[in-house]
Design a protein around this nucleic acid. Structure first.
Lengths: 239, 239
DNA sequence: GCAAAAGTGTTTTAGCTACACCCATGT
DNA sequence: ACATGGGTGTAGCTAAAACACTTTTGC
């Protein structure tokens, strides 16, 4: 019963990324086409192996930069879970994956990664309806990450991570509506987010309007918890 | 820039457990005395290495059973985070740890693990004030897990995991008071938890009373989300 | 002026807080 | 009877929902 050194399995570790963004009011995730077996040619979450000198968070940041071609500073990035079933990779090699939820504003160059692989934004809802559509157990990993994003939107300030550095209240409302698949009352939403301490920081500037009163521009505030929480209304697409 | 197989670091994986319970109204965590270098003789979180045929969740369940001597069925168990800094183990070996939050009722045999190591319940608050008191980065791991437990108490039904299979409303209230370090209004708490859909399931039975009206006994309900949430009042010990 | 989008006010409702009060049991 | 803890009622306050209304821009 005493453990010996032989009991210590050696494994490869990967950081796989669920990079979410909102395009045209719909929640999208970044997928890459696999260039090697197994699952050659199938769509998968981007990710990569832990290397010698880095932490796993560092692996995630590096992959994020390689896949999107942009600074990782602009992204919210957090761990979601560890996937370690022995049969999750069809080769018998033992590969354990830690998944990361990354939240990005709508990117100017959304699909061109710095490496050669094809990358594409896909609507999340289609993928959640088809769990076998992705390589490995990435359907499950995607679902877990999206669930976490939907839940955390209520109690944390991660919604601002979907927005560019400066944004309007309406743009922020569209984030909640897209992620939850609901529609929210515009006036009440405005009051609630502007009243929440530390959620939004006014810039004093206004957005040039295309017909209509110009909207005030905000930056993300310093708070990480959203108090009082923005409770998700019943109904909607997710959950 | 193309990754080669040599970039794939091989690591050992451990599941380390933050086992929380409430004893005499105070939040406690289970610690074990280390029997080997490094940190020989120091207090640490229980944990163990991933073995060949199991998942990491399986490792956590196995360790939980070995440390507490009880069935893992009665515990809430969830992943918290992955700790992968290259220097977190003083030997240069690369050991990556996934931490688990386990929530247990006050155990009849709290300290006797099935293996030879000394185990002890320690109040959480003392340990959080002294981050160097534990081996490795276990002070940090403990803090992250306790923060997660304190936050999730608001929005999920994990509080019932601190209670025995059948429990009274007052026992449940003492859980919230101990974890948050606050005191809650007894009548309002009663209404709130009994009104929350799926939180408590009445058994019809009553607890034999030691002076006073016998309290109704409940079991944990089927819901995992607590709606409406039990918002943590300002003040208290944690956070 | 008119359309469009932003932002504010107002009424109603629901939930929460504080605390008084009643209930059921042991001694 | 009375002490002890369990449970309910209620008045006042605060937050949220629903929706009417005003403001500021482009055309």
């Amino acid at each position: 019963m005493t453990p010996t050194r032989r009991d210590r399995l050696l494994v490869h570790l990967t950081a796989d990324l669920v990079i979410l963004t909102i395009r045209a009011g719909v929640l999208h995730v970044l997928l890459v086409e696999r260039g090697t077996v197994p699952f050659l040619g199938r769509w998968a979450l981007p990710g990569g192996f832990l290397r010698g000198a880095e932490t796993l968070d560092g692996t995630a940041v590096r992959e994020l930069r390689e896949e999107t071609g942009l600074d990782a500073e602009r992204f919210h990035l957090e761990q979601v879970g560890v996937y370690s079933a022995p049969d999750r990779d069809p080769r018998d090699q033992r590969i354990v994956t830690c998944s990361y939820l990354a939240i990005a504003p709508d990117l100017p160059v959304p699909t061109a990664g710095s490496d050669a692989r094809a990358a594409v934004w896909r609507p999340v809802d289609e993928l959640l309806d088809d769990p076998e559509g992705l390589a490995f157990d990435h359907g499950r990993i995607l679902r877990d990450a999206v669930d976490q994003a939907r839940a955390k939107l209520q109690f944390t300030t991660i919604a601002t991570s979907f927005c560019p550095p400066e944004f309007t209240v309406s743009e922020l409302r569209e984030v909640f509506e897209a992620v939850w698949g609901v529609s929210l009352d515009r006036p009440n939403f405005h009051r609630k987010v502007t009243d929440a301490e530390g959620f939004l920081a006014p810039t004093g500037r206004r957005r040039a309007s295309a017909g209509g009163r110009p909207a005030a521009l905000f930056r993300a505030g310093s708070a990480t918890a959203l108090m009082p929480p923005m409770l998700r209304p019943p109904g909607g697409s997710g959950r």
